[in-house]
Design a protein around this nucleic acid. Sequence first.
DNA 1: CTTGAACCTGACATTGGTGTCAACTTTTAC
DNA 2: GTAAAAGTTGACACCAATGTCAGGTTCAAG
Lengths: 111, 111
Amino acid sequence: MRYYETQGLLRVERTPSGHRVYGDWAVDRVIRIQALYAAGLNSKKIALLLPCMRDTDGAPSEIATPQLVTELATERDRINRMITDLIRSRDVLDEVIDTASDRLRPALVEP
Amino acid sequence: MRYYETQGLLRVERTPSGHRVYGDWAVDRVIRIQALYAAGLNSKKIALLLPCMRDTDGAPSEIATPQLVTELATERDRINRMITDLIRSRDVLDEVIDTASDRLRPALVEP
DNA sequence: CTTGAACCTGACATTGGTGTCAACTTTTAC
DNA sequence: GTAAAAGTTGACACCAATGTCAGGTTCAAG
């Protein structure tokens, strides 16, 4: 989370002596950040994107610029490809698992 | 691909003088390897998994051991979580994009 | 007050697949 | 035959988020 802070992803309150104070909102925010990292976005894009996201209760605090929109559209397309590839890989795993499982209990299907 | 070779993912023929000879099958295999990497598997699991996969035309050359099956099932579950998270992130991106796009051409929806 | 726990900063290691470079050998084209 | 192109090996750098450690400050309980 210190790292997130340096990247401008998390603005954290400080107690007068310098200790960080995390509000409840920080939890959701960290979860969102990690999801975006997992989706392949880098710190910079996330930093630009976060303020444009709708918060739990409110409207976004910023509107994405046209430049950012095209970048995000590119990311979205990449994520879509990622999803279809993952589904394919998952299905391959399922097939391997099923094939092996069939061999493990052949009695169940014998006449 | 040299790296894949060292990890036991690609067995490559050699010409007498040592040059690598890649058959057509290598293309599909590399694509599959990269898909599995993208799905978060590491070299070792992929090396165990590959021989259990059905090839383009033939049956798998090996059947996964029970140990491997449980590992693969864990990976599959992780991939499933990955997919749902990615879908969520993609939808978030879509929302940000749509919101910005609505702002860019408001005339189209004005009365 | 004192002591232990928790926090701060800054520097550094880790990860694992990928990219790059040098020095050398083999192939290919003319 | 010769030169350019492309292959080989091995060593090393890179990325970027995360983890860890040391030395010093602050907080909280007794």
